[in-house]
Design a protein around this nucleic acid. Structure first.
Lengths: 223, 223
DNA sequence: AACAAGCGTTGATATAGATCAATCACTGTT
DNA sequence: AACAGTGATTGATCTATATCAACGCTTGTT
């Protein structure tokens, strides 16, 4: 990603390759002192806030960085939990900054990553802005599908590694509604779902339901 | 903010002080080429996405940076419109990066700003996660109040510079619901509202309605 | 001052989705 | 293999909120 071998070597020296975490284990807890960012190598991580009732904030896939929202804080605001066995690398942030201060290309990458995270959240806000549950779930599935395919996985056939409860919390609806909508989508032939396994059968229809602009026709306008 | 006078001078040379924008004018449009970030000096800016139906993504106050979600893109994804006469400074990003590459303290500040933006969005996700409209509006008002007070303005008495429509879009509910909830809160004595003017009378009660943890009792836990 | 246009409020109605309750199906453990 | 415990599904009911419709109030313009 635009770094020389030497740069990468320097970076490698500070990265800690932790042992793989098993389902249910935490990358960090809310309230813990912020020291590092975490790169997801494989697996899936959910972030959530436990103030009041458990509110899921996001699902993170390989390549994503978690802990970014604590950079300007002393402590983590949310907790990060592994949804399936995951390999996570720890990146001590202070040491990272020291190294990056001499490597403009690394800084540039970091800006891009942070920005990607912001635009990612923007997409989620868009998804959440939908007033009805059907749209939200459809948009969620399409978004997930897109993210998986960007990582070289199938866009049409995948396993959900989060529970129905997590999905419902994330989308701001009741679990029962998630369940019923899955069934409805299934019965309408939009997708085939059984347990955690989802197979999208009709993208166009799902996009129509989601009220989103199909990815194929996404904004390309130039000034 | 930890910069020497010399640093600030350098930064000043690249900042463009645009003429003030009037209500309704745009800072940038979706699809325009990304070149600069924008710092809000005074006023208020809303960001929105016009794909499908107008979806409000955020309200930005003095000190906030807008355009961050485009750093890793060639074009802006959303549009930014001024809600009241606002002074906006333009910060050409490429030139900024060149200058920052020699100024670690400036880099550090930038990371903090980007992170602040991410945690800001996290708060919004929390707010949006609420299933019922009452909680969302209450949380919205508290959040806004808190942001205003951080800027030295009154936390209890302020003017909304966005329309009811903007609020409804932002919170994912119908305009009518916003209107009715304002009335209900007013009648219940939680606040006094007339048109754009809001006066919060009972913070504790509003916090209870919002289902959020009162700011006073916010997480301080240490590992 | 009068007017238009947009914005906000209010009321009536319909319905999507929350909630409550019961059952069923996995998953993992002894 | 049996069991417990959790997670998912389904059904019935009720309520919050979307939707439809009408009206009133501001604000800005001629």
């Amino acid at each position: 990603m635009g770094l020389t071998n030497g740069d990468v070597e320097k970076l490698e020296t500070i990265i800690k390759h932790a042992r793989p975490l098993r389902r249910g284990e935490h990358v960090f807890h809310a309230g813990e002192r912020f020291q590092s960012l975490y790169v997801i190598k494989t697996g899936c991580v959910k972030t959530y806030d436990a103030q009041g009732k458990h509110q899921v904030l996001g699902f993170h896939l390989p390549g994503d960085l978690v802990g970014l929202d604590a950079i300007d804080k002393t402590c983590h605001l949310c907790s990060a939990q592994v949804l399936e066995s995951s390999a996570i690398c720890e990146l001590p942030f202070q040491r990272f900054e020291e190294i990056a201060s001499h490597l403009p290309s690394l800084q540039h990458q970091m800006y891009r990553l942070l920005s990607k995270e912001i635009s990612q959240e923007t997409e989620i806000l868009l998804l959440r802005g939908k007033t009805n549950a059907e749209e939200r779930l459809a948009a969620f599935l399409l978004h997930l599908s897109q993210r998986l395919s960007k990582r070289g996985l199938s866009a049409t056939d995948f396993y959900l590694n989060m529970s129905r409860n997590d999905i419902s919390s994330y989308l701001g609806m009741a679990v029962e509604t998630v369940s019923r909508l899955f069934r409805r989508f299934n019965d309408q032939g939009l997708l085939r779902v059984s347990h955690k396994h989802v197979e999208i059968l009709d993208f166009a229809a799902l996009e129509r339901v989601s009220g989103m602009v199909p990815i194929s026709a996404q904004r390309q306008r130039m000034p």
